[in-house]
Design a protein around this nucleic acid. Structure first.
Lengths: 194, 194, 194, 194
DNA sequence: AATGAATGAGACTTCATTCAT
DNA sequence: AATGAATGAAGTCTCATTCAT
């Protein structure tokens, strides 16, 4: 069992403060303009401490991303899936995704949605495999009938979802991400899965 | 009555060199890491000259964007539209868009696709009005039958297209943008316009 | 007689435009931040033209200064001095000086009042000799009785006047220069000349 | 409970080196021509270090100004005032002021005496209130009899003093500031306070 | 674990001035 | 006389990162 000495507990707390402060600040301040020093000043820690916990500010973005991923999995897993059609499951999947982007905020989404972000293109992510599984099962159960492969369908759906979030960022959140996601995904799902 | 003296011509040439050099370099080098100094060195002009012609490097991106827009209009206008269905026109529209992104290159597209880029969200752009017109006419002629408004349809299509280009950037151009665009847009068009 | 060809007339006109534009701009814009390019843009002349007429922007300040000096002399000379006491003449002298600073404006005065400006310390300036003459005559006619030399008296008066204009600049013209000058000089004159 | 660790002490020392180097250099080199880089080179610190301690070079001028102010207060407070007339106190006040400008040097004075310097026009400065107190008390005790208000008297005196220092700067310190100040202030004091 | 002083490369931009036309 | 494109030195300031304490 991990023994959490006072020191270690303090360290965890400090790291959490940095994390929370960053998440708070990135909503206000463009990610690229957010410097380590600014974060530290607001978090009331020294820059040295920052570098003790994170290699750089990109690492925090990654951490947020992974935590969001994990959160997504948990929520998705706990959803009552039994009795739902593949289509319903897909729509539910992206509803949840929209909820999460909304929850982590526009600032975080803006930071994430840049073309150099290779967090997106990891096909091993549980999120990705989850969707693929839904589709594969949908095909197996004849709920989805399409000339496209599960892989293609998955890709189209993610591409669409990213297009919507990107638009949401561009338009500074001036529409409901959740509603737009639901509407668009429904359209695509019907088109590809009928 | 061209008032193009030799000096004026030289100036135009110099600006073109900067423009071309930039476009060339942005394919190799991440836009944010591309400095004015680097551009000038490669273009063999002084930094002063650069600032004589452009306010900063973002202005070049804008110029490329506007030129691409104009190029798009010209090409689109010259397309034989007569006899084509609204659906065909829409698909042709996005085929051309994909061609243009391809032509201006992955580097330029990456520079363009960031969430702070408000060049995208100008609804007055001719490109935007063109698509709306096609849709409006398609609805009027009963070629497009949808419960969605022309405005909504237009938005869905652009959002999808941006999602595809964004994906193309993320994946470093590892698929054919033109093919993907054609395929995805066809799916959406069928879904929304049937 | 100077023959003013069309070309020469044009040149004089152009120089005047630059001069006037500068005087106008220095009221708004801090002198040090006023660049040759800005002046030229506003004056609608090329930078080359600027350098054809002036060596740099300091030369315009000098020209203004000398013109103001000349203007001062003319006005001062035309004043009916006959019958006036030395004291009255001194007060009148500085009243006029205040009028001129006021007329040329706060911006010009701010540009002038810096500690590197050696236009001030030229004791050969007619303005300086004028005041000295008044004082010398005042002493000779027993209107001024002081243990101080004419030279000292002159210096004290100019120092005081400069202190007032400097204060006027510091306080952004928030009091009447002419009134303050009149009041202060009266005090000093009475003190030193009684 | 001094929390001065060795590192903190080193930091204070570094800042002092920058401060001292600046003060030394401004005597030789025109303030506007004194660049951060030059200061750092001479002080043997990096520019980063400079900006760690000061926001820009103007902040050093401010610091000098405030320290001089504080120094003035201390000296003035410690002066035996008891038994002195208001007039004597005023003259003593400006004697001290002249001493301080002399002590901080011509270069510093030149840097200070520009028309954009709003350090001067803060009427809350202790130096300002000190003089006003002396005058008010002098009026209350019938040592100063004048038709002018304490506020006006104070302003005339400061204006005169600034005129003298400005002149001293213009003439590159070619006269004794302390003597001139003493002489001029005496004249004004007698005139306004008799 | 935490601190924060120090580094210095490097980005951006300005601007006086020249000179061929 | 007038133009304005071109130059490039020089200044300001930022910021990720290190390291002794």
């Amino acid at each position: 069992m991990a023994k959490l000495t006072k020191r270690k507990l303090q360290a965890i707390k400090t790291k959490a403060i940095i994390y929370d402060t960053f998440l708070e600040m990135v909503q206000e301040c463009e990610f690229e303009k957010l410097t380590v020093e600014k974060i530290c000043k607001k978090a009331n820690v020294s820059v040295g401490t920052f570098y003790h916990h994170y290699r750089n500010k990109y690492e925090i973005i990654e951490e947020i991303f992974h935590r969001a991923d994990k959160f997504f999995q948990e929520k998705m897993s706990s959803k009552q899936i039994a009795g739902k059609t593949a289509t319903e499951q897909i729509v539910g999947f992206f509803d949840l995704l929209a909820q999460i982007y909304n929850r982590y905020g526009l600032g975080f989404s803006k930071a994430l949605f840049n073309t150099r972000n290779n967090l997106f293109i990891n096909d091993e992510r549980v999120m990705v495999t989850m969707l693929r599984d839904i589709i594969v099962q949908g095909i197996a159960e004849n709920q989805i009938i399409s000339e496209l492969s599960a892989e293609d369908l998955k890709r189209i759906l993610f591409t669409t979802a990213r297009g919507i979030v990107f638009d949401w960022c561009l338009r500074d959140g001036d529409f409901s991400l959740e509603e737009a996601m639901h509407q668009y995904i429904l359209i695509v799902v019907r088109a590809i899965a009928a």
